[in-house]
Design a protein around this nucleic acid. Structure first.
Lengths: 147, 147
DNA sequence: ATACAACTTAGAGTTAACTGTAAGTCAATA
DNA sequence: TATTGACTTACAGTTAACTCTAAGTTGTAT
């Protein structure tokens, strides 16, 4: 089963513009063309594009993803480099999750803060509340955040 | 204790350019000026800037952060709007964490894949490995991801 | 064979969030 | 008081990742 760029775009939830951009940037050199030059996407290509989207989701810039694709096209001589890249990404994603969890602590505190402020009609109530009057989990959060 | 823009930048791990940009965009209207027009940052401002950085860390664009600051400057009549904004952010951050955890599953699978490929000198070993020959946690991961 | 929709490339335009430059002003020290 | 380094504004430049336009080509349906 082969797909045109529009069909591939629907399947991948991208636009044809984006797929052509990825092609120009060297992210999908394995996508073949018809005799007339029309891109023909095959099933196997979608797995690759999903992997590219996964790397993008880690915040990896397109140029670094291209580096990885270049290594892949080079064959087994680049296995170590590709392995190391994934381990580095693993570290970074674990850090991102930790960081987002800290961010979430602040947001959760603010949710309580504004719940309390809305109920009172003024921010001075949560602002001046003594720690011992706060719910346990909020007191914990307040201790963790640095606002 | 008052701080110049350079001192404030060091304290917040930002550049003076960025702080001026935030000021121009209306993110820190509460920062006062000396008679000569020089910005004078006070301790209280840093808490605010930390909150702005927290909102930025959730992926919130500067224009939406400005909306929140505008609501703050308007006073208690905007409490409900501010509360709702934090609840919306909470949802989004929880989604981001979930999404990153799925991304991490794919990365972890690829770490195993390339560990195995490097050991064998070729990707065909992990590529053709039967599920029952994989470690349990890898088989689990492989079932979860969609490459 | 002829339409005509969907494809192609090259290159320009957009957006967000900075980042830097130029010209001029402020403030601390010799 | 004069110098000098840090500040000010206005505005231009940068970067990443698209997004769109124009001019031309391909492929399918009559």
């Amino acid at each position: 089963m082969l797909y045109t760029i529009s069909e591939a775009a629907v399947k991948m939830r991208l636009t044809p513009y984006t797929l052509r951009y990825y092609d120009r940037e060297g992210l999908i050199p394995f996508v073949e063309r018809s005799a007339g030059g029309v891109r023909m996407f095959k099933e196997k290509d979608f797995g690759w594009i999903r992997l590219i989207e996964c790397m993008k989701a880690t915040g990896m810039p397109i140029k670094e993803i291209k580096q990885f694709v270049d290594w892949y096209m080079e064959g087994n001589s680049t296995l170590q480099l590709r392995r190391d890249m994934f381990y580095e990404r693993k570290e970074l994603v674990e850090e991102q999750i930790e960081s987002l969890q800290k961010t979430l602590d602040t947001i959760k505190y603010k949710c309580w803060f504004y719940d309390t402020a809305v109920a009172a009609g003024t921010t001075s109530v949560p602002k001046n509340m003594k720690p011992e009057d706060m719910p346990d989990e909020i007191r914990q959060l307040k201790g963790k955040i640095d606002l």
